[in-house]
Design a protein around this nucleic acid. Structure first.
Lengths: 190, 190
DNA sequence: CCCGTTTGCCTAAACCCTTTAGGAAGTTCC
DNA sequence: GGAACTTCCTAAAGGGTTTAGGCAAACGGG
């Protein structure tokens, strides 16, 4: 009975690859077992449940995004930083659609608090250091940026902008221009 | 053998209610059968498959949102229209979280083209009539608005802004102000 | 009114995914 | 070499999906 060398880490990594290939919600303990040519029950020594697997994939995806964002933001500010962060989100989603979906998977509060999601939030806020925004407008702006990035990437990967002109690439560039302009001219409270 | 009076319409409506109660991805043919106190197989005379059910719920949700948006936009323009449309999205998502998730369910191209989604897109574009934007900037702006609304509502219903100040209500209002300002001062191409 | 047709719901059964319990083979270390 | 532990296994129960085929209720024409 040769051993397959299963570990939680390898399972989660393989699960992430599986998610990118077949979609996050097609990720199943059974499919993972097939991929390792192993019986399903064997995985339950390494994973508490199917939910546990999905949560771990989500945490992995958040780590990866946070790492990329941190690297992209190093040494940049202003619009450079804005575009760098935005492109990390978009590029990650296109390269790893399953993982990106995983990253949007709802986590319970405790798990979320310990995840790389908070690092991403901090980096998002760091973008605004290059602009002149005081609280609470800074927070509003952070939320706007998060919404735009997430929303655009979601709609784009769902095929929303696929079959129409102008192409998505151009809209993305112009939207980043518009956001930069908006952050530099944030309207005063009425 | 008393008949339960099942029809596709009633099943889809009940499915939508179920989605709001337990979440869209918990909507299952089995659960629906239980709700009608009927055997599972009976539903397959009215629904082709579990996927079919979900698709129909998605189409229902899109219809409902389009109707509300059309009514909200009637007689409004400029920022009034912007806020009205935005609030329709947000209010619908909060009143019917399951249906809202359903509305984001990916549809194949043919189904999407025949859905109320195109009506929603047209209404979204109609908002911009109150602003002075020529193509292709108009399209970029449409995509930006769609992204913000979808993104903000998704993050909010996922609990993203729940436990932090300032509260989500205030951010929403200020983000609408900011978008209005941006549309009135859309940056020229660099 | 009653008989044939249509329709609506049923039973039965196959298949897949999840999860737990308990067993046997491989590994480690004294 | 054997005790202890780890890794993977078989077995089984429970739930969701889907199809095939059957009986009974409703309906419509002679």
């Amino acid at each position: 009975m040769a051993r397959a060398g299963l570990t939680t880490q390898r399972l989660v990594r393989a699960g992430a690859e599986l998610a990118d290939e077949v979609g996050f919600d097609q990720v199943t303990v059974s499919a993972l077992a097939r991929r390792f040519d192993v019986k399903v029950a064997s995985l339950y020594s390494h994973l508490r449940s199917s939910q546990d697997l999905k949560t771990r994939i989500a945490l992995l995806a958040l780590e990866e995004m946070a790492d990329r964002a941190a690297e992209a933001l190093a040494g940049r500010s202003g619009k450079d930083a804005l575009a760098a962060f935005a492109n990390v989100c978009r590029d990650y989603a296109r390269a790893h659609p399953g993982r990106y979906t995983a990253a949007r998977h709802p986590l319970d509060d405790a798990t979320a608090a310990g995840s790389a999601g908070v690092r991403i939030a901090q980096l998002n806020r760091a973008i605004l250091r290059g602009y002149d925004l005081a609280e609470p407008d800074q927070t509003h702006a952070v939320r706007l940026l998060g919404s735009v990035f997430h929303g655009y990437v979601s709609l784009e990967t769902a095929g929303g902008f696929a079959h129409s002109a102008p192409d998505s690439e151009e809209s993305w560039a112009r939207i980043l221009d518009a956001l930069d302009s908006l952050l530099r001219n944030w309207p005063a409270h009425p």
